[in-house]
Computed example of a mutant assay.
Amino acid sequence: MRLALFDQDRLGLVNGDHLVDVTELLAGPGPYGPAGPLQRHIERGGALPADLSDLSGLPRVPLADAKLEAPLPRPGKIVGAPVNYLDHKAEMAYPTSIAELGVFLKANSSVIGPGQDVLLPYRDLRTDQEGELAVVIGRTARHVPAADALSYVFGYSCLLDITVRSTEDRSTRKSFDTFTPLGPWITTADEVPDPDALELRCAVAGEERQRTSTADLIFGVAELVAYTSSVMTLHPGDVIATGTPAGVGPIRHGDRITVDIERIGRLEVGVDGTRATPYAERPGRRARTAD
């Protein structure tokens, strides 16, 4: 099942070339707040009605006419997995991988949805695309063994971990507003029998930059959920970005970025650099000196 957020707080079940409006059926009555109705559905257990075979009585919207939003516009937290592919480790000449680095956090305010624009913050620093598989947690997880970890997953999505190549900490460089495109929907875990066997492709301006299989992850999905839950409690609706393969590169004003993941979907966003400023003019750029 694929669940999408559309047209301002409506929850849709993707059914062929239409969205079936299942907002009240799955999330109950609104309002849903900034986290949206899918978050409500996941927090309520993510269970489906006993019979979804007859959807004829529910409103339908052509998928082509719907304005898709990020399926989880305000997740509780976004956990990133740095250097989780060996080819990316070699590409960036990192001496360490996730095994030594652990995980990091991104601001949940950095999330945008399909069709929106990544806003470049600086005109004179490189900003890169990083295509990734996103894991959405379905129930509270703490010290979960890897053998049971996939049972804590609600579903999967496509994600871009946009990154400025500056000197700041990862959480700063990756947390600018618009730096976590997510979508176009959440594909529930029952549709993905093996999340460690998915083809991932990422293209910028029509040129393919990244192609991999999630089989090449250093920490596979189950191990990543288990490890992360040993550090912090994971709550329903939390998102784990599983890491990016080799092929990261600069994005520029006017580019279109796409991430395609087998069984999951295709996410496309634009790039806008019209409001970018020089790095030297950022707030706090000058160190204070004693009088």
Score class of each variant (00 low, 15 high):
Ala107Tyr: 03
Ala107Cys: 05
Asn108Asp: 07
Ser109Val: 10
Ser110His: 01
Ser110Gln: 02
Ser110Thr: 01
Val111Tyr: 03
Val111Thr: 05
Ile112Cys: 10
Ile112Gln: 08
Ile112Glu: 03
Ile112His: 12
Gly113Thr: 12
Gly113Cys: 01
Gly113Pro: 06
Gly113Leu: 06
Gly115Val: 05
Gly115Trp: 04
Gln116Tyr: 05
Gln116Phe: 04
Asp117Glu: 11
Asp117Trp: 09
Leu119Lys: 15
Leu119Arg: 15
Tyr122Gln: 10
Asp124Ile: 13
Asp124Tyr: 04
Leu125Pro: 00
Leu125Lys: 14
Thr127Glu: 02
Thr127Pro: 09
Thr127Tyr: 08
Gln129Asn: 12
Gln129Thr: 08
Glu130Thr: 13
Glu130Gln: 14
Gly131Met: 12
Leu133Val: 08
Ala134Arg: 01
Arg139Asn: 03
Thr140Ser: 15
Thr140Asn: 03
Ala141Gly: 08
Val144Cys: 06
Val144Phe: 03
Ala146Arg: 13
Asp148Glu: 15
Ala149Thr: 07
Ala149Trp: 09
Leu150Ile: 05
Ser151Asp: 15
Tyr152Thr: 07
Val153Leu: 07
Val153Ser: 05
Phe154Glu: 11
Gly155Arg: 11
Gly155Phe: 07
Tyr156Phe: 13
Tyr156Met: 02
Cys158His: 04
Leu159Ile: 14
Leu160Gln: 15
Asp161Cys: 00
Asp161His: 04
Ile162Met: 11
Ile162Lys: 06
Ile162Ser: 07
Val164Pro: 02
Val164Tyr: 01
Val164Trp: 06
Arg165Asp: 09
Ser166Trp: 12
Thr167Lys: 11
Thr167Cys: 03
Glu168Asn: 13
Glu168Ile: 02
Glu168Ala: 14
Asp169Arg: 13
Asp169Gly: 00
Arg170Asp: 11
Arg170Phe: 14
Ser171Arg: 05
Ser171Lys: 00
Thr172Gly: 04
Arg173Phe: 09
Arg173Lys: 13
Lys174Phe: 01
Ser175Thr: 04
Phe176Gly: 00
Asp177Tyr: 08
